[in-house]
């Protein structure tokens, strides 16, 4: 299963970006093979609706879940419709966030 994490910069430092739509990089983690890939987020430059554009990419990447700091209401709604689970985390690193996800410590965000 593919899970996407939102990362700062080009993602190589392993630092999470709290933002979803305007995070520069998505880290795509494959939970079966433990593989990780980095993908640039093309929505960063949208004047408006960055979160929605990013949601589209998440689904196009074939992810089943997203781990990020905060996800706007519109994007949350869209991801919910697409069957992607959204988890919010306060962790600053990918490693911590992944560990929390494995332990079941992350809160699932749902549209109101």
């Amino acid at each position: 299963m593919k899970i996407v994490f939102t990362m700062q910069g080009d993602g190589r430092d392993g630092l999470m970006d709290r933002r979803f739509g305007r995070a520069e990089t998505f880290l795509v983690y494959n939970s079966e093979t433990d593989e990780r890939g980095l993908v640039a987020n093309s929505a960063v430059d949208a004047a408006m609706g960055a979160g929605l554009k990013a949601a589209e990419s998440i689904v196009a990447l074939g992810a089943v879940a997203l781990v990020t700091g905060e996800c706007g209401v519109k994007a949350l709604h869209a991801l919910h419709r697409a069957g992607v689970k959204v988890y919010s985390t306060d962790s600053t690193t990918f490693a911590d966030a992944l560990e929390d996800l494995r332990q079941g410590n992350l809160r699932e965000a749902r549209p109101a």
Partner: peptide, 23 residues
């Protein structure tokens, strides 16, 4: 339609697009 809309008000996951009136 999704490609056309410069304001990201339409997005699609493959099927019929979703519309976000705020945008």
């Amino acid at each position: 339609c999704v490609e056309f809309c410069g304001f990201n008000a339409l997005i699609s996951f493959g099927g019929p697009p979703l519309f976000f009136p705020d945008l």
